[in-house]
Design a protein around this nucleic acid. Structure first.
Length: 530
RNA sequence: GCUCCGGUAGUAUAGUCCGGUCAAGUAUAACGGCCUCUCGAGCCGUGGACCCGGGUUCGAAUCCCGGCCGGAGCACCA
């Protein structure tokens, strides 16, 4: 056996290929296989009765593409294993990252839009007594202490692996101090509860982390519970306790939380809990989009953005407005999967997912961006055209226009795109799509003149005429397209668009997909993509 | 500075745990062609990648060592 392997390895690739070709030609045939991508299996599922995942946002901003990975992966895994998906509002910072009432609901709405149904919901600001309970337990067991050092002093010591004097207090003293925190005798910044870890832990970030602190809620009332509490848990305390209590089996979150796992594991050990399985995925960026909450909040506040759904933002609200389907986002996130490397997507990626879904669903219409009046003379007769609403689906129906030549010159007037006309030279022939062929006579300013040639499609095709779209002057309405950079483009759409309901997504042929935003007095659309 | 994580075409992903079928698959983007009364969709085709250097091995994207590059944490934020 080994001998054969050695022998074969000494042959060149060409020689090996030749032998295979002669003896087993079928082995060289390549098979094309299309695989439906799905999520890799979750670890240790069999250990648990039911998979439980959670999405836990701070309601201090609307949701955006940056959260999509956490939401969709958590939800998708819960569904895949017929488990539970929990929404938990982590609103435990009334001061620095203050929650805002309106966002609780906006986040719920965003999740509904995304198609991620929530099985259960919790709000941490309802649960302070629970955290107090565990804080006291940890203090009683000597696993935590009340630290009254200045943060800078503590840091200095901890970097040198040294304990501060508070660490040596007795359990009774700690409980006294804890009560002083709770009853308001100690003010903001005067004390924190720290979980004891290992002062020699190689990672300084893991040493004796803070679990609860005091916030002056008279000055900074919480939007839901006001000034009822002044002692607030920090992330690792609240999330750690909740993950256990809520039976979370698989934590799926960004890798910036990697050291938080290390920290929380100390607490889990003290309380004799098992730490859930974890997936720490990498950061998701999209080129050219701001995915930073603070920038979004700032920009909306100053009016640089028109709102949470400004088309320049990658918030779900904005993506919705721009005609991005939630299914496209879902599919994209699932394809990306849960790996730890950072990803930088380009819009093209999202668009191609979206286009695939949109194409069969969207009806087609004509829209002229830079209108120029084209006067066609010598139109011999009345033309009635039926334009397909969808090129591949006749069952979608038609829109019908009747072109009636007028005057003794038998003229018919159309709006066409200036760019199209500019690309044609005088005397050249072109075709008004689905209508007839014309010859360009002359162009001046905002009008052009042409004369009827014939209505032979074959001739247009064979002679490679340019095919351009058009809007009959008597059947035109004005239309505004809001572009991705928030600029407005005004153009002319065909009158059949009058009946479109807002929120439908259509394709303006040779222009791109747009979503109808408003169609009362004026047609206003948002541009999606080509 | 300390600690952790990562690096496969322009972008994203499969393969890495457990070395051979990877001469590196797929999607998207680019280019060319076909088809189509859209510049969309569809079909066919082309080009394009294992961060670098050593080592182990008959054989390395995969294992080991060293380097380089990128990201994250080191908050009384989440």
């Amino acid at each position: 056996m080994n001998q054969i392997v050695v022998e074969v390895n000494h042959l060149s690739i060409e020689e090996q290929k030749q032998i295979i070709k002669n003896r087993w030609p079928e082995a060289l045939k390549k098979e094309k296989h299309k695989e439906q991508k799905s999520l890799p299996p979750l670890a240790n599922v069999e250990k648990y009765r039911q998979v439980v995942t959670r999405f836990s946002p701070n309601p201090d901003c609307v949701l955006h593409l940056g959260s999509a990975r956490a939401i969709i992966l958590s939800h998708e895994y819960a569904r895949k294993y017929k488990g539970k998906f929990i929404l938990r509002f982590e609103d435990t910072d009334p001061k620095v990252k203050k929650p805002i009432l309106e966002f609780y609901n906006r986040i719920r709405e965003d999740l509904v839009w995304l198609g991620c149904t929530v099985d259960d919901e919790f709000i941490q600001s309802d649960r302070l007594p629970i955290y107090y309970d565990y804080a006291k337990k940890l203090l009683c067991k000597g696993n935590a202490y009340v630290c009254k050092c200045l943060p800078e002093d503590f840091r200095k010591r901890v970097i040198e692996n040294k304990a501060c004097s508070c660490r040596a207090f007795s359990i009774e003293e700690n409980l006294d101090h804890w009560n002083l925190m709770l009853n308001g005798a100690l003010g903001e910044g005067e004390a924190v509860v720290r979980i004891k870890t290992d002062l020699n832990h190689p990672n300084p970030a893991a040493r004796d982390w803070p679990a609860l602190r005091i916030v002056d809620t008279d000055k900074f009332p919480h939007p839901r519970v006001g000034s009822k509490y002044s002692v607030w848990p920090l992330y690792n305390m609240a999330a750690g306790v909740d993950d256990h209590l809520m039976g979370i089996t698989h934590i799926i979150r960004g890798k910036e939380h990697l050291t938080n796992m290390v920290r929380q594991k100390y607490m889990y050990n003290y309380l004799c809990w098992d730490y859930p399985e974890t997936i720490h995925y990498g950061r998701l960026k999209i080129t050219g989009a701001f995915l930073s909450k603070s920038k979004i909040i700032q920009g909306v506040k100053t009016g640089d953005y028109v709102g949470w759904d400004d088309p320049r933002l990658a918030t779900f609200a904005a993506l919705n407005k721009r005609g991005i389907l939630p299914e496209s986002i879902q599919k994209m996130i699932i394809d990306i999967g849960p790996k730890t490397a950072d990803v930088t997507l380009s819009w093209e990626n999202l668009f191609s997912y979206n286009r695939k879904l949109l194409d069969p669903l969207s009806n087609r219409y004509f829209f002229v961006l830079n209108p120029i009046m084209l006067k066609v003379k010598s139109v011999p007769k009345l033309f009635e055209v039926n334009l397909k609403l969808h090129p591949q689906k006749t069952e979608a129906g038609f829109r019908t226009y009747t072109i009636i030549p007028e005057g003794n010159q038998r003229k018919a007037n159309f709006w066409v795109d200036k760019k199209d006309i500019k690309s044609l030279s005088k005397g050249s022939m072109f075709r008004l799509m689905e209508l007839f062929n014309v010859k360009l006579d002359f162009v001046s300013g905002n009008t052009a003149e042409a004369s009827f040639v014939n209505d032979s499609y074959k001739e247009a095709r064979n002679s490679k005429f340019k095919f351009i779209h058009w809007i009959y002057q008597d059947e035109s309405i004005s239309c505004i397209v809001i572009m991705p950079d928030a600029t407005l483009s005004e153009g002319i759409a065909e009158s059949a668009c009058k009946n479109l309901k807002s929120d439908t997504i259509i394709q303006f042929e040779r222009f791109g997909f747009v979503r109808i935003h408003q169609n009362d007095e004026k047609l206003i659309t948002y541009y999606s993509h080509k």
